[in-house]
Nucleic acid binder design. Structure first.
Lengths: 150, 150
DNA sequence: CCGTAACTGTTACGTTTGTAACTAACAACG
DNA sequence: CGTTGTTAGTTACAAACGTAACAGTTACGG
């Protein structure tokens, strides 16, 4: 059922392409944290943020990762049960908790970081260094636009 | 908890950036099909594929959209209930069903296509035409790489 | 102070999802 | 044909999810 509207534009519809690229690359990666550490996708994302951008509260992770607070809340609980993470109520505001990886959690993050780096390098090879860099830059711009209410 | 591994690379970890970009742009768009037609995300994706690449079976949509067959099965059922789509068992293989949009479904697709096109154009404006085109091209390449088992 | 409003994080509940088991149809081989 | 294996699509069940309501804490205005 073709439309009067040119389909060329629509078959390139960005949200769709983004979803598919995200879904496929995520799927290719999830096997690692799932089989080795029994982690869920959201758990890996939370750990990723703690490991790469440092100790922070759940709220900060929500904002930075575009994740819902209940999702983060449950992931934090799961990571805590696995002894990958510990929480410490802030003295300055006792509603918030500072989250940080335990020694064990840090080791897991380091391990997965290696896999992630390999993964990223293979991607860079198949795309070419410049295209890879451009992609990263463009995605960041796109994220910024949308977050400020595009 | 910083690592020995350079974090510059990791904070640009592509699967994460892709997820976030996909999530944000999808969220910005979902309001339209949700409030006007009570459609779920997967229903919109299925309709999108039928509308833009023509009548096809559920299996074909699964492959093209990287969606799980149960997800597609349920979306098709929902779209059928809304009378947006009809199925016709193939004579050549009576396991498969050809899916095609009804008149009503086609109208809905046309309406949402307009919104999508506007959305896409605004995106193109904020990114610039060349960067937008590059992004599309790179994402397609990336999807191709992953689908062939990268 | 006291009451109201706002904010962080958790929990209850209904919906959506994925895994696995299933039905029905085809295909290949004796 | 009949048996075995494969494929398209559905369904049952448990896990994960989002919405909304919640508890505890802070901020502010009288």
């Amino acid at each position: 059922m073709t439309q009067d509207t040119p389909n060329a534009l629509l078959s390139d519809f960005l949200p769709f392409l983004l979803f598919q690229a995200a879904e496929l690359s995520s799927r290719n990666f999830q096997h690692h944290y799932q089989s080795r550490y029994g982690m869920l996708r959201t758990e890996w994302r939370v750990m990723f943020h703690l490991g790469s951008t440092g100790d922070q509260t759940a709220k900060q992770i929500c904002n930075r990762a575009s994740l819902h607070k209940t999702k983060v809340s449950r992931a934090v609980k799961a990571l805590e049960n696995k002894r990958f993470l510990k929480r410490e109520t802030l003295d300055t505001d006792r509603r918030s908790e500072q989250l940080c990886l335990t020694k064990r959690g840090t080791a897991v993050f380091a391990d997965l970081t290696h896999v992630a780096t390999d993964f990223d390098q293979r991607l860079e090879q198949s795309l070419g260094a410049r295209e890879h860099a451009n992609l990263v830059e463009t995605l960041r711009k796109l994220i910024a636009v949308h977050q400020s209410g595009g």
